[in-house]
Design a binder for these strands. Sequence first.
DNA 1: ATGGTATTAAATTGATTACTAAAATAAACC
DNA 2: GGTTTATTTTAGTAATCAATTTAATACCAT
Lengths: 97, 97
Amino acid sequence: MKDEQIEAVAKILKSMSHPIRLKILCLLRDRELSVGDIRNEVETTNANVSQHLNILRNQGIIDFRKDANFIYNRISDKRILDLILKMQKLFCPELGK
Amino acid sequence: MKDEQIEAVAKILKSMSHPIRLKILCLLRDRELSVGDIRNEVETTNANVSQHLNILRNQGIIDFRKDANFIYNRISDKRILDLILKMQKLFCPELGK
DNA sequence: ATGGTATTAAATTGATTACTAAAATAAACC
DNA sequence: GGTTTATTTTAGTAATCAATTTAATACCAT
């Protein structure tokens, strides 16, 4: 791996390495969810979820669409999806798939 | 994934998400290296390498053996090795393997 | 033991990050 | 228009992290 690539991957890992953000990514594994949906699963405030979503968006990991006054989020980078699946297999093998 | 597992995996990712530490893990992918060897590859001081190695050791990611006044480090967690390989495939596909 | 190399530990400093609460935006509904 | 709901932004504070310097320790060779 070249140093540039190392830097880039490290940034991605960093953005995934917060418990709330990792949980968000797991929740979005195979569906899209609104900010409020996520806040119900993660015990924190709306504003906090919004901030974490922003970090993931700026990193290009997730994308969103608007519908009425809801914002639905989903994972936009296939590689991140693969990585999440791999991590679940490695660290939580009891989960199907 | 249960919350406990999320926390644990997040901690692992966090310890991997620093450029120097990620580079160290890549260097150790298929061999063991001394602190001095690593310092030659990563442009920083001995003390800094040592601190980063310590973080990885405390996380249980790497292990070491002593030989004379050298300390040889290697990845001790097979899952981390798998994860590194997966990340290289995903983000640096031009690398063989 | 002494000198030299390799490694670790401690302490300081500066930078980054996370959370909270409050204010702002935006779109629906009555 | 005014209210409600959903989300975002801003500002402030506290906490954590990273790099450097300095001091300390461990090991080998002579």
